[in-house]
């Protein structure tokens, strides 16, 4: 009666090369677009006279900077972490612009749903927080991880092992999986309800055609939800990065 034909998972996740030879596919297009859009927006922002009250694109860029400084850095690292603003701002803008194509017509694919992009970002974050730890604490960063101070001597090897694994392995792993899986799940949900609506519309039974409104309403709802997820996952990725940098810079917290 109803041939529900869900496409193979790779067909909704992997894309043929748009320009063969250099591996330029839809994901590459999205990341390049993300870079172009963010550079264009910030360039337009700095072209405006900074002495006038900010309006339009400059206001937007300044609100973003204030958001990173006041909502992300101040509660996690504190005043000394304000130097990390450009890095975290770039991270936030890039992740958001890679997330949001999941609901943009014709693109309809969040670049971060492919594991490679969150993996790269997590590796960068890993390098940054380990580097910050080494810079502020020297080799003490690793010795504190392995032999944590303020723990009973008998528990030190156990706690040290847990700390070492959770800091150096679980942190980048969970950052990667969290970002990728959230966007992947959203993408698969959208595909599922789109396929359901389409198959119901196309079905031979007339009685089934009006039922297509239900998955369609769900599709609209999930699309709205995906906007929230795109923002929230970028926010969570960046605030976790800030927390990790904070623990590297101030080991006592």
């Amino acid at each position: 009666m109803l041939a529900l034909d869900f496409p193979p998972i790779n067909e909704v996740l992997r894309w043929r090369d748009l320009i063969p030879g250099i591996g330029f596919n839809k994901i590459s297009l999205i990341v390049v677009l993300a870079v172009v859009i963010s550079v264009a927006v910030f360039f337009a922002a700095i072209r405006k006279d900074p002495m006038k009250p900010p309006t339009g694109v400059r206001n937007f860029a300044e609100v973003l900077v204030e958001f990173i400084e006041q909502q992300i850095i101040m509660p996690t690292v504190g005043r000394s972490g304000l130097g990390w603003t450009p890095f975290l701002l770039t991270l936030f803008v890039f992740i958001f612009l890679c997330n949001i194509p999941g609901i943009i017509p014709f693109l309809q694919m969040p670049a971060t749903a492919r594991l490679a992009i969150p993996l790269f970002l997590s590796l960068v974050v890993w390098l940054v927080f380990v580097g910050a730890g080494l810079k502020h604490q020297g080799v003490g960063y690793f010795t504190h991880l392995i032999w944590p101070p303020g723990v009973p001597a008998g528990l030190k090897p156990l706690v040290g092992l847990i700390e070492l694994v959770s800091t150096l392995i679980v942190r980048p792993f969970s950052l990667t999986i969290r970002l990728c899986a959230n966007l992947l799940a959203g993408h698969i949900l959208l595909v599922t309800f789109a396929v359901l609506a389409q198959e119901l519309i196309k079905s031979d039974a007339i009685a089934l055609k009006p039922v297509a409104i239900l998955p369609w309403v769900m599709l609209v709802f999930i699309t709205a939800f995906e906007v929230l997820v795109a923002f929230l996952q970028a926010y969570i990725f960046v605030i976790l990065t800030a927390v990790y940098i904070g623990t590297s810079v101030h080991p006592e917290h």
Partner: peptide, 10 residues
Amino acid sequence: RTTMFLGIAF
């Protein structure tokens, strides 16, 4: 709210 989002993330 900040702490809540962190907790949700973990």
